[in-house]
């Protein structure tokens, strides 16, 4: 068990280290490193953008702009061992720029939710519902905390540092958010069961 935990912990550290290396290699002219960086972080960037913007198309635009900005400004990257925090800070700034333009977040209708993913063949009803629950049931900080923990793999204290919140606030918001999501998913499953039974 201890050995497993040690390996796990090293893996996490290596993740940050390998992201650092990818940025450095890209700055030295290795374009493949950029593609690997993109592959390793795009879900984190997209989900974080969704947690702020609540809008799939806007989040996609931020995903695009974020990696363009990364590409153009990687030379100014100053490694402090926190490449993911750097990337997400770029994403956050782009999101807030977009919010300033829009003045506020926009709630999507049922139809718009369906249309948002209609060209995506990888996604099904359950995934859309999962994301929609996260966007519609949770407060902004709860959404950010859940995506940072579940997808960007930030530890709670790293989230507290990143979001400048007390650790206790992060913990309580996280537990509250998970509870809300759990209830929403259970309700969804029960609805499915009822539909299956009625059929």
């Amino acid at each position: 068990m201890i050995a497993f935990l040690t390996i796990l912990s090293e893996t996490v550290n290596n993740d940050e280290k390998s992201l650092d290396n990818l940025i450095m290699n890209f700055v030295s002219g290795d374009e493949c490193a950029f593609e690997k960086l993109y592959d390793g972080t795009r879900t984190a960037v997209y989900s974080y953008a969704m947690s702020i913007l609540k809008h799939p198309q806007d989040a996609e635009d931020v995903l695009h702009d974020c990696f363009v900005k990364l590409y153009m400004s990687a030379g100014s990257y100053n490694s402090q061992g926190k490449p993911m925090a750097w990337i997400l800070t770029i994403a956050k700034n782009l999101c807030y720029e977009r919010l300033r333009e829009r003045k506020r977040t926009v709630n999507l209708t049922d139809e718009e939710w369906e249309r948002s993913f209609e060209t995506n063949e990888h996604i099904g009803r359950e995934e859309i519902l999962t994301i929609r629950s996260l966007v519609e049931l949770l407060g902004e900080e709860e959404r950010m905390i859940v995506t940072l923990h579940a997808i960007s793999r930030f530890k709670h204290r790293e989230i507290a540092e990143f979001m400048n919140l007390p650790l206790s606030t992060v913990l309580s918001k996280y537990h509250r958010a998970v509870k809300k999501l759990r209830n929403a998913y259970l309700q969804d499953e029960q609805t499915d069961e009822r539909i299956i039974r009625s059929v």
Binding site: E35, T43, I151, R182
Partner: peptide, 21 residues
């Protein structure tokens, strides 16, 4: 399980914009 469901859903939802980038 909740975390895993969130993670998998976003993995499926994230569009691939590398070519455009």
């Amino acid at each position: 399980q909740v975390e895993s469901r969130v993670r998998k859903s976003f993995e499926a939802a994230t569009p691939d914009v590398l070519t455009d980038v």
